[in-house]
Design a protein around this nucleic acid. Sequence first.
DNA 1: TTCAATTCCTAGTTTAATACTAGGAATTTC
DNA 2: GAAATTCCTAGTATTAAACTAGGAATTGAA
Lengths: 152, 152
Amino acid sequence: MKLSTKGRYGLRAMIDMARYSEEEPVSISSIAVRQGISEGYLEQLVSLLKKAGLVKSIRGAGGGYILARAMDDISVGDILRALEGSLEPVRCAAFYSEEGCMASDGCVTKYVWQKINESINRTVDEMKLNELVRESRQMNPDGDCGNHKCNG
Amino acid sequence: MKLSTKGRYGLRAMIDMARYSEEEPVSISSIAVRQGISEGYLEQLVSLLKKAGLVKSIRGAGGGYILARAMDDISVGDILRALEGSLEPVRCAAFYSEEGCMASDGCVTKYVWQKINESINRTVDEMKLNELVRESRQMNPDGDCGNHKCNG
DNA sequence: TTCAATTCCTAGTTTAATACTAGGAATTTC
DNA sequence: GAAATTCCTAGTATTAAACTAGGAATTGAA
């Protein structure tokens, strides 16, 4: 039940971007330095955020990324799902009919996965990016994680 | 954020055991057949359940496993945590001080992981094994999953 | 008392997913 | 036109998951 580095790094990148993109676009390399994340890898993560419509890119010198929507209109759930694909603990939670579980009425556990899925989504959807940015500014005026071995 | 087969198979095994161990101990091989799970692998999973004190074993011919406690005293959370170790999405959620995240006051995201963790645990702890067994008996009098490619 | 059925334990192997790295094309500013 | 950027894809390395294998210990029954 672990979140991959996609979700972990990606959320940090998003907070970073939210903090620094108000005046000018934020480049991948600057996020990578502040957050201690590999530049090439981060690029791929940010591209997922872009595909999901959470950030916009500006190409060329002086370019970078900015948020596509207001911070209070982007939830942690939006971000994590963009990065991780889906947060459901087991695939059949959502009754995908093309999967093996057509005989799903025989599968009691699907109710368990469904409830877990719902509770995770409820939790992450009610946390908005602006709250995290506010916390981040309070706790850490420098903007970086302070410790690059950090899992957050 | 996927649950591994440990959690998936293990929960099914536990439901199976609860259904069939009232009169006599249930052997690994019989669970393996009913649930379509590899016997050797299942053995390892059940050993985790035993270590966690959820089941008791009876060795020798005619032996097998029985529940260590009443069904309504065993939660899905007990079972999943026994199998998966912990359900927290990121390790630093619980503030492990030996981890890298000593500078955790710099890590905003830890609050996110903490909230997710709490919501998962709340959800799985309020589901008890007896409820699943009841469902299972209703839905599927045969006891097997009906479809062994099922993810549940 | 021996055999078969079981749990118990550990180490090895295979497979798949994750987490990158590499490199070049396209775009834009100065 | 050079530098700074995003964009895109393919390859690789590392790690974790999911088993497989095999033998020792225990017990019940023939």
